[in-house]
Design a protein around this nucleic acid. Sequence first.
DNA 1: CGCGGCTTTGACAGCTGTCAAACAGAGTGG
DNA 2: CCACTCTGTTTGACAGCTGTCAAAGCCGCG
Lengths: 239, 239
Amino acid sequence: MGQLGEVLERHLLCFGEMPEPDRQAVRALDGEVRNLPRLQDALREGDRPKEVVVVLSGFLYRYTMGPHGARQVHSFYMASEAPCLETLYIDYMDNNLGAAVDSRIGLIPHEMIYRVIDEFPEARKLLWRQTLVQAAIFREWLVRNSNLPAHAAIAHFFCEMFIRARAAGLSKGDSCDLPLTQEFVAEALGITPVHFNRTLKQLRDTNAVEWRSGRLIISDFDRLAGVADFNPRYLHLRC
Amino acid sequence: MGQLGEVLERHLLCFGEMPEPDRQAVRALDGEVRNLPRLQDALREGDRPKEVVVVLSGFLYRYTMGPHGARQVHSFYMASEAPCLETLYIDYMDNNLGAAVDSRIGLIPHEMIYRVIDEFPEARKLLWRQTLVQAAIFREWLVRNSNLPAHAAIAHFFCEMFIRARAAGLSKGDSCDLPLTQEFVAEALGITPVHFNRTLKQLRDTNAVEWRSGRLIISDFDRLAGVADFNPRYLHLRC
DNA sequence: CGCGGCTTTGACAGCTGTCAAACAGAGTGG
DNA sequence: CCACTCTGTTTGACAGCTGTCAAAGCCGCG
């Protein structure tokens, strides 16, 4: 029973069920654990990683660098999530994975996972599905950043983060950790930090949400979801 | 040897290699062929399809409807491409798939593909990879729509469509079909048709690209790619 | 010729970006 | 305990890209 395998098993079970033998096979996965200091990268564009990453604590983010030093964040990953599962079957990274705060990550060798995939169809199905859910999230972010005005986009982002935290068992009541700077989130939403800050103030004034010292508190989820036209359907969560 | 299987085989080979037995298994896939008139949907939000779609001719597009009737296009699919391969392992559609022009599509039953996936690991690998490449394209569209000014976004879109058409063997020299209205493309880029039109005129004046009566002609690809900061890396094409 | 769909153009409002500077809070060292 | 520094947040002023609303032009087709 590897620590990493247990984390991955719990994560996969958010998206569907597996029979006990498959669960056991996933649970048996294990690998190296490593500290990843804030702003350090775990994977870089062009890398051909030989392990799959699991977030144990902290917050990771995936990004690409634009031509003029502009950074676009594609996604955030909280504890228990598995970014870049896709490295299993894609030749090389076309983006970067880094730590937004001091984090601890686990590295499960591809070889071990290939064996599970070959021998346990239900585990394979959930692994595959996890990568598809990632794609669904990218689609939703595309819609959000392309169509929603800043205040709705911010509300949408908060809703998603909270729902994901709750699914991962990381929320407490109506709040969860969100240890990011405004700049990070602004780069995920495709807006300027300045504009993000201004718009956040407006949202705060609605008393639906608060975000300070790394903690997100959603006192009126329904109102916030209404502002964002948020529907958690795309997350394909079972719980 | 199914017609649909052959199309799918050729598409998968754009992303990697398979040994002959796997190729044969894919080639043997087949199913119903159906006409899909312009603006009609093949799949709708909430559907639980039992077949995988292959585009035989025409142009499909995937989209979601926003709250105020706003439509966001997630992607376009030209002949030989396979949209929504993801339906194999995801519970229900969280978006719609429709025809941008009169099209012909093939429907391969999930059951047939599951058998290939179970018995032919290399075919499975390419199928999986195809879904991952889709995700990579979503990421790139996210970056494009979030960061690039309209003229660069349009140039980027043209570059991608041309490269994909060439990979599919659908280009002739420096041109390919692109039978879409300006409105469709504008909705993919997350800008207004009016603004799209205005900005397109500017691009046209650079003499790098032309687009009329459904045909895209790129007379100076390098210049266009420069404007867009386009790098085809994310398409993960072998050829 | 008239109709319908698409493209093109105009005028104007407004959301968002840019550049700068002030402000706040945590950690450091004197 | 108080400067001091550093990072991140907050505000201000202003430019400009993009959206909105309308109307005109273009083209294929019955």
